[in-house]
Design a protein around this nucleic acid. Structure first.
Length: 403
RNA sequence: GUAGGCGUAGUUCAGUUGGUAGAGCACCUGUUUGUGGCACAGGUUGUCGCGGGUUCGAGUCCCGUCGCCUACCCCA
């Protein structure tokens, strides 16, 4: 028996309904904020992710489904959504137009990791990218939108925010940090020692308790921001306060992807195991340039669908449609024209096998139908059908024509 | 890659100190050839993950292997 690959799942029945409902809800809200749908390829040139997500990131350095295609191209299944959307933004020359663009997308992402709760090799994200808006108002609006999506889905969350600075204030801070870290190098874990060279900011995010206590004295990002970054961050917190959105400033919050700057945020849930991030995002003002576009400020985020699926509160399922059955073999074919007619407006389940009355009624329940329509000997003789409303229990017998 | 846990019917699991498998749910049929969701009665389903070893005999013990889950790491 062939089974799905490790970390990949089939989705059906109740789970599939939750999935569709979740995406649908997110789309509806994103549209209200002016986002339009964008679909980009799952397979992209590997260079795209190396340049955007970053060579030193775990995602690129060890988690990509990367291979050579039959034409000898170095290609890669997308490990995240932003890079592809930015690439599309640039390759379609939208960066040359002085128009702000907002896109939403959803679809599968691939990372070759060890699966665990909330982490699959093929997983799905819903995300938004906003291009051309430099104002922190947009960061705020985006966070508001995510809150609204989670609220609509009945999901509780904690919000963490941070500022990662800009090319003006980040490099000096970075040097500062590196010298601090170098001093305590011997006491830091091996991972952190590696990170000092590759991506020192990530050290701040180390989960190791020993490292964390040593880092208490470290220079803080938020205390070393330039004037603009500082005032934007303050404005963001003020806007969130006014909007009544609870948040926590987490100076150790570092996004795992290299392209972020200024605002970074993460929505977490404490109900879903160790992989608690249910949404993450932030500003990436330099990425369009990195990918050969004209300088364009941008903000974006992504929601992990699988991570929120079990938290989604679904609306109650209603009985729906009509179950049709016959009790004699001759009557079966009378069902088809009726079904064809009703399928123009509602769900119809037709049972082809003639069965006893009781069995049909059970079948109607199982199908979740609102109405049961049966044709038996009497109905066949009289040219009528028998219909029962399974909720109100009302029943009636009417002619075929009247149906 | 590392660590721990687990692999027995469609599913959730039980299986005592080794004696060739069981329960609930689900499914099918019936209890009334015409009133469902309930109840009752009956019935179907297993290479006990795979391979090897010990033994008269292994679901049970030993070794190996594969798979799943959880956690580290990292992130959505």
């Amino acid at each position: 028996m062939i089974k799905p690959l490790r970390g990949m799942k089939d989705l059906m029945f109740e789970d599939a309904e939750r999935f569709v409902y979740t995406i649908k809800t997110a789309i509806e809200i994103a549209k209200r904020y002016g986002y339009s749908y964008i679909e980009t390829p799952i397979l992209e040139e590997t260079a795209l992710f190396k340049r955007s997500v970053g060579d030193s990131s775990d995602i690129v350095s060890k988690e990509m489904y990367q291979f050579e295609d039959k034409g000898g191209n170095d290609v890669c299944m997308r490990p995240e959504g932003t890079a592809g959307v930015v690439r599309a933004f640039v390759s379609n020359k939208l960066d040359r137009q002085p128009v702000k663009q907002k896109f939403y997308y959803y679809g599968p992402m691939f990372r070759y990791e060890r699966p665990q709760k909330g982490r699959l090799r093929e997983f799905h994200q819903f995300g938004c990218e906003s291009f051309g808006e430099a104002s922190v108002y947009e960061d705020f609006t985006m966070i508001t939108m995510i809150s609204q999506i989670f609220e609509a889905l009945g999901i509780g969350f904690d919000l963490k925010i941070n500022s990662l600075g800009c090319p003006e204030c980040m490099p000096p801070y970075r040097e500062n940090l590196v010298s601090f870290l170098t001093n305590i190098k011997e006491e830091l874990c091996t991972d952190c020692n590696r990170r000092i060279d590759t991506n020192p900011i990530r050290v701040l995010d180390c989960k190791n308790e020993k490292c964390q206590s040593l880092l208490k004295e470290s220079p803080k990002l938020t205390e070393n921001l330039c004037e603009t970054c500082q005032s934007d961050f303050q404005k963001l917190t003020a806007l969130l306060d006014d909007a009544g959105i609870a948040y926590e400033v987490d100076t150790n919050l570092v996004r795992g992807l290299d392209y972020y700057n200024k605002t970074a945020f993460e929505f977490v849930s404490n109900e879903i195991g160790a992989q608690s991030a249910i949404a993450g995002g932030g500003r990436y003002d330099k990425l369009v340039e990195y990918l050969d576009g004209k300088p364009t400020p941008a903000v974006g985020f992504a929601i992990g669908i699988e991570r929120i699926m079990e938290l989604v509160k679904m609306p109650k399922k209603q009985k729906e449609g009509i179950y049709m059955g016959a009790m004699t073999p001759e009557a079966v074919e009378h069902l088809f024209p009726l079904a064809a007619k009703k399928r123009k407006e509602t769900k119809v389940t037709v049972e082809y096998t003639p069965k006893g009355f009781k069995t049909h009624m059970k079948g109607a329940d199982k199908a979740g139908a609102r109405y049961a329509l049966l044709i038996g000997e009497d109905e066949l003789k009289n040219g009528t059908v028998w219909i029962k409303d399974l909720e109100t229990k009302e029943e009636k017998t009417i002619t075929l024509e009247a149906f």
